[in-house]
Design a protein around this nucleic acid. Structure first.
Length: 287
DNA sequence: CTAGGATCCTGTCAGC
DNA sequence: TGCTGACAGGATCCTA
């Protein structure tokens, strides 16, 4: 689930809670979810929080990092003087922790605790030196960050040129093309641009590429502005469960509802092996 | 080199 | 109620 905006929301939220705190102990509940020696990270102060695409990097003193990837179902929940969480929205935002899904627990010197919960065990935390982060096979291959200042529509065009026979949705999901786009923002960006996800990249004109690029930027920024998928959006003021997609999504999980642009019915199709949401009137294949 | 499909794992939901 | 199969907001590995 968590894509760039969710990870960025976590980075901003967590920053206020753990910077300058010392990691005193790391407990792992699932070996698959933690790579490296916990002792390398213990007794080190948190210096900063960075992000590369969908990866979060907790920077510790002495050039040591905790590289966190939430993949499909990962979430981070901080429990201390206050409670805060972000990532895949589940009741573990609210439950007593550790829970059955807690894979790693990080304890700080002020008694705050950070829980990495992950139902499907696809996510992980790795202890890496600064050099090792740069050499990491995933990090090394990442394209320009979708939110980076220097990422312009011509950069997207240049990357697209490498994949002329790909479907445009597949190209957007490719982290080496642009870092941070997942299934939600791919669908939202293509709806924004009025481009069908199965159009071949080579068939797109400059105007369409520019609109897709704008769609990526605007939908992600809007999601960050409203706080993405976080504990704050999980429970509404009246105590009922909230759905953060309501806050910015136009088509994602909106099948059966009306297209906000033309009023046609939004449909869900299967494309590139993923559930894909389009307005069949605004996004035509033959166009 | 690229493109497409299977795969890791568990929880949930629709349909019978 | 209980079972079964499909599928899930990601990335990698394998094949062609």
């Amino acid at each position: 689930m968590p894509e760039l905006p969710e990870v960025e929301t976590i980075r901003r939220g967590l920053r206020k809670l753990v910077i300058d705190k010392v990691v005193v102990k790391i407990t792992t509940f699932e070996p698959k979810s933690f790579v490296g020696d916990v002792k390398k990270a213990e007794q080190r102060r948190v210096m900063g929080l960075a992000r590369r695409g969908k990866a979060l990097i907790i920077q510790l003193e002495g050039g040591v990092n905790l590289l966190v990837h939430l993949r499909m179902t990962g979430q981070l929940v901080y429990v201390g003087t206050r409670r805060w969480g972000g990532g895949h929205p589940t009741d573990d935002f609210l439950n007593s922790l550790p829970s059955a899904h807690t894979r790693v627990m990080v304890e700080f010197d002020d008694a705050g605790r950070l829980f990495f919960n992950d139902q499907r065990k696809f996510g992980f935390i790795k202890v890496l030196s600064d050099d090792e982060v740069e050499q990491d096979s995933f990090i090394k291959k990442l394209g320009t960050d979708a939110l980076a200042e220097e990422f312009g529509w011509r950069d997207l065009k240049r990357q697209f040129l490498r994949h002329p026979k790909s479907k445009v949705k597949a190209a957007l999901l490719d982290q080496t093309v642009v870092a941070g786009v997942g299934n939600i923002y791919a669908d939202e960006s293509l709806f924004f641009a009025g481009v069908h996800p199965e159009r071949l990249v080579g068939s797109l004109n400059d105007k369409e590429i520019e609109k897709i690029w704008r769609g990526v930027r605007e939908t992600m920024q809007k999601s960050i502005d409203v706080g993405g998928s976080s504990l704050k959006n999980y429970v509404k003021a009246d105590g009922k469960k909230g759905n953060y997609l309501e806050l910015f999504a136009q088509v994602f999980h909106k099948e059966g509802l009306r297209c906000p642009k033309c009023g046609a019915e939004i449909v869900k199709i299967r494309s590139v092996g993923r559930g894909t949401h389009i307005c069949p009137n605004c996004q035509k294949l033959g166009k």
